Amino acid sequence: MAISTLSLCFADGEVLLADGLTEANISIHDGRIAGRAARHVDATGYLILPGIIDLHGDGFEHHMAPRRGAQSDPALGLRAVEAELASNGITTAMLAQFFSWEGGMRGPDFAEVLAGAVKDGHAATDLHVQLRLETSVADQFDRARALIARENIRYVVLNDHLPHSALAAGKRPPRLTGQALKSGRSPEAHHALLQRLHDAMPQALQALAGLTADLRAQGVHIGSHDDATAEDRARHRAFGATIAEFPETRAAAEAAVAAGEPVIMGAPNVVRGGSHDKKVSAEALIADGLVRALVSDYHYPSLHRAALKLWDAGMPLQDAWGLISAGPAGVMGWGDRGCLCPGRRADLVVMSEKTRRIEGVFCAGRVTHLTGELALRMVQ
């Protein structure tokens, strides 16, 4: 069923353009930023900002499994996810879904279920799947390749969460029992699986090179997760991973930027004032021009909160908000969103200037969130 789009003009608000905030009118019509509209809405007292683009968020997981083992209907879970995304100004979201040996909600079975639900869900928010591929699961690479093609997944991130140090030393890995319970395996079976995957890593990496070459030829973006060193970045670059997601150190971030590769950091890192596990500060990297985009990571509200925090600290709003709009659009090569330019998709966030509460969100000209005084003005 088609979802109707609006034709209206937000009048006399503060609109964020390329050179900053300016008092202006902005119209949306037929799903695009337009020069005309059927009716006017008084936007005095509101900031009108580009819709937020989130390239990596796993906050959806708690909607899919409110309690451990209690998975909900994916379609119902996605409705709750979409409501949370919209209320936080996110108009394009990539759900960061594992394809991993960890099993459960991080296993291939659930990845296939989620991707199918996203494709068939008809959400008003623009939802995508980012596949977080564990590099050790070579026996599942053909299955991953088929999933990526079938569901048109455009962004794959390489992960390696195997506890290699413990496995190489013949020791019991940390947190083994908890991981085993989540996966539905006995601790002994889980340990044996990890050891087998560790021992077969040379063969897995050979297979990975072929897989990523195929994916890049199909236009799939490849990123790497948690590079700790410049050498890590170079190693992943050799597999075609040209996006550095959550580098753990300044050296890894600088190596990416020197090679012309975008660096993505977590917005919660900015909001908290640093990494929760003592890794490099996102705010420090941003100050030095090393970050192209912020993502929600595990907390959707952190995206707009991080941009506003940077603005309060003296960063021009167009640059701070650009980290959650134009920046991520550029990373993915999306030329139809990320700014409030004529002809672009009508993705807007309408925020109270006084309270900084998001009261209206529009994706391709469709209402995805509406509340407060703005709702009253729009229905009058």
Rank of each mutant, 00 (worst) to 15 (best):
M332H: 02
R345L: 06
S325D: 08
L348K: 11
R356T: 04
V350R: 05
G343Q: 10
V349F: 03
P328G: 05
K354Q: 15
G322R: 06
G330F: 04
G322M: 11
M351S: 04
G327T: 10
G343S: 13
W321I: 01
R357E: 15
P316I: 09
G327Y: 11
G343P: 14
G322Q: 08
A364E: 11
W334G: 03
D319F: 00
R356S: 02
R345K: 06
V349C: 09
A329H: 06
P328Q: 09
I324C: 12
G365P: 01
D319G: 00
A364P: 00
R356A: 02
P342T: 13
C339G: 07
E359R: 01
M332T: 06
F362T: 02
I358T: 13
R337P: 13
G338N: 04
W334L: 15
W334I: 10
A320P: 11
C341Q: 15
V331Q: 10
Q318G: 00
G322V: 07
G343H: 12
P342N: 10
C341M: 10
L348M: 15
D347G: 06
G338D: 06
S352Y: 04
R337F: 07
L348E: 12
W321V: 02
C341V: 10
D347P: 03
V361G: 02
G327I: 10
L340G: 04
P342D: 12
R344A: 11
L348N: 13
D336L: 01
G338T: 09
I358P: 03
R337Y: 08
G330K: 08
R366K: 14
C341E: 15
A320H: 10
L323G: 02
E353C: 04
V331R: 05
T355H: 09
R337W: 12
A320D: 09
L348W: 12
G335Y: 00
A346V: 07
G338K: 09
C341W: 10
E359H: 00
R344L: 07
R366T: 02
A364V: 00
D319T: 05
E353R: 15
I324F: 05
G365F: 07
A320M: 14
L348P: 10
G322L: 05
C341N: 04
I358E: 05
I358S: 06
G360E: 06
R344M: 11
L348C: 12
V361E: 01
W321D: 01
V350D: 07
R344K: 14
G330Q: 14
A364H: 04
P316F: 07
F362N: 04
E353S: 14
G365C: 02
L340D: 02
D319M: 02
P328R: 03
A320C: 14
L323D: 03
M351E: 12
D347H: 13
V361I: 02
D336S: 11
D347A: 13
I358W: 08
I324T: 13
G333C: 14
D319N: 08
G330D: 11
R345T: 08
R366L: 01
E353V: 00
S325W: 04
A346L: 09
D336T: 12
D347Y: 11
D336V: 01
V349P: 00
R356H: 13
V361K: 03
I358R: 09
S352W: 03
D336H: 12
A320I: 14
G335N: 13
D347W: 12
V350T: 07
G365V: 01
F362M: 13
Q318C: 01
E353M: 07
A329M: 06
W321Y: 09
L323V: 05
D336M: 05
